[in-house]
Design a protein around this nucleic acid. Structure first.
Lengths: 367, 367
DNA sequence: TCGATTAATGTCAACGTTGACATTCTCTCT
DNA sequence: AGAGAGAATGTCAACGTTGACATTAATCGA
């Protein structure tokens, strides 16, 4: 996930200390930028009123062909470009931008979600503002506030703070707020999440069908909504085959606690070690795979979330399309813009098991 | 790069055909959204003029403690949120948004660049709008135009079209335009690129130092500025040891032509096959690695661009920090905002060789 | 031929904010 | 006590655009 490059301190650009730009101060924007041509400027040059120029630009009202030609020539000459800020303001501050708020921008998962959002929004003439909270729950509300001041048309976000009730007012004002990957806390709102429960349950069911009963679940770290759902799916599938006490096989790690690899060691050291392991997230998968290197073909394994080279390594996973998460969220936002009423929607993106071998290792037959 | 998931057609949200939203039409925005409180509304409630409320919000002008309290209470009661559109308009349409235009949003490389940009911009109170052209050169100018209508403060872009002269006017108007990864064509502008030439040259120098002389260069596809630079670096390093005719070892593939793997086969089938191979991009690396599987430890290999698991596979690469590309571009944009004058800057982000084994295979000693 | 329709254009105000400037009032200093 | 300084607040206009409405001229149907 991180680049291990060590960048040489060679720089071609002077390491100048750049003073922070005060939003909107205008005064410290350095040397004045050239003034841009306005409708009035174009109109003056073409010998018509600003309103007529506006008509030409919007291609609505009636304008004679000759006037139109003259106006367009003037606009070209002055390099006129309509000012969408003024447009938006005139129309009650209705913009064409939608915000997507993420915790960690360097997580490729969110990037794919963002890609899905961007494409879907583009279909409707909307643009995406990408904002990050750097995984700092405290900054979430601040970042969101800044975006709302920009009058973003809708808000898509992966919640990171422990409370989103501060968005209640905005929602009532009619701004679509869509939560991605995890539902909001203390707020009734739309959300688009994965089939976490079903995905994990299906994986475990495949394992139980292959005879496994001692199946472990490792999540590192665990705590997010997604992890809880996946854990619940794991428990449910085991309950279906009569295994009710899953506690001994659960390894829900906290930040700073034992690693996934260490958990595997402790599991294998049990009197009756598990015959299969399910990982609740990518990081756990990575740890398990490393730890299982010394035990090839002994323990079945399925991870949640596909990863590069999982194919080559023959690792079975519960997979899904991250971009679909974004697409659906964006689509939901758009439909809310057109029709704000109606109960909160809760969309689930399908997950499915990809069998590549590691999850198909049968349980050792009990002699 | 692509998820191979097959998404089940299960949907929880009705597949409604969503009519495209006409930018700013306002009329089709569906049911009217609640009107938002303005400075005037707050002022009325607090018994002061809008201007005084403005003073409280901006924390500039002098306001008595008692009035301030009253105003803040009123603002809270009305859920007032300053309108940045109006602010920007008032200040000559100076916004706090910067655009980053990419061709392919799903390319993780650009995502890391975007992450670098976002972080750097955030330091200066600027937000990032992410826009994609879907690798369609024809749409580049259109996308840029839309962004400029939004009055983005600066424009960062990975050029994809064959001509960027259409930005000349905007540059003269004072908008910083920074090109990333590749310089602009037909336009004098700032750019932030990798040390493509030096990076490849260093890699080849390491190989020649290890005795290699028959070194191949594969790029798939080849054509971009970056590829040309890398090819030039390769040639230069070989020239330094007296090898001037590199043509037989160069495999610059076109889209639809032979794959990198096929090129490797053809190279190995030569009378005097190469003893080392350098890949000019990620895709070529992938092909070479596959093709070399049958020839372990025979041919030295170095790829341009690090990739996941290259470490585990012992592949030597020319690496760099993609986020740094974004950071420097953003920093350059910010410095341009403060001081627009000065000649175009051309920043080069350092690359460096990471030795992991594949590139350190010595040349077979000529008996 | 005349009122009625339509085309082509213009005028005005308002979207929400804030800089420039004006006003009022209270101190402070001599 | 009067002049001057400063604090606290207000008025006005403008940023660029466009909807609502007004105006004028040209076209049409009976």
């Amino acid at each position: 996930m991180y680049c291990d490059c060590v960048i040489k301190p060679t720089v071609s650009l002077d390491e100048q200390v750049v003073a922070p730009i005060e939003p909107m101060s205008g005064a410290d924007a350095g040397p004045a930028t050239q003034p841009r041509a306005t409708l009035a400027d174009v109109g003056k040059l073409a010998g018509v009123s600003p309103k007529t120029v506006s008509r030409v630009m919007l291609e609505n009202g009636a304008v004679s062909a000759e006037t139109k030609e003259r106006v367009m020539a003037a606009a070209r000459a002055l390099r006129f470009r309509p000012n969408n800020l003024a447009r938006s303001l005139r129309h009650g501050s209705v913009t064409t931008t939608v915000a997507f708020v993420i915790g960690d921008l360097t997580n490729p998962f969110y990037f794919l979600v963002a890609a899905g959002i961007e494409r879907e929004l583009a279909k409707h003439g909307l643009m995406m503002i990408l904002a990050a909270t750097d995984d700092d729950p405290g900054s979430e509300a601040r970042v969101v506030e800044t975006l709302l001041k920009q009058r973003v048309r809708a808000l898509l976000m992966v919640p990171i703070a422990s409370d989103q009730s501060y968005l209640e007012g905005e929602r009532q004002l009619g701004t679509p707020v869509i939560f991605i990957d995890r539902p909001a806390k203390n707020l009734v709102a739309d959300s688009v999440v994965l089939q976490n429960f079903e995905g994990t349950a299906d994986a475990v069911r495949a394992l139980t069908a292959a005879g496994h009963r001692r199946i472990a679940f490792i999540c590192s770290p665990a705590g997010l909504y997604t992890h809880q759902q996946r854990l619940a799916g794991y428990r449910q599938a085991l309950r279906e085959v009569g295994v009710t006490d899953t506690a001994p096989w659960e390894r829900l790690e906290e930040v700073g606690g034992p690693s996934a690899a260490e958990s595997v060691e402790s599991l294998l050291a049990m009197d009756e070690p598990p015959t299969a392991i399910v990982a609740g997230n990518n990081k756990a998968s990575s740890g398990v795979i490393h730890a299982l290197r010394g035990h090839p073909d002994e323990i079945a394994f399925v991870g949640f979330d596909d990863f590069e080279l999982a194919d080559a390594a023959g690792i079975s996973v519960i997979a899904y399309d991250p971009a679909e998460l974004g697409r659906r969220a964006a689509r939901l936002a758009v439909s809310r813009l057109q029709d704000p009423i109606g109960p909160p929607q809760h969309v689930e993106i399908p997950t499915h098991l990809i069998a590549r071998g590691s999850g198909e290792i049968p349980a050792p037959s009990v002699g």
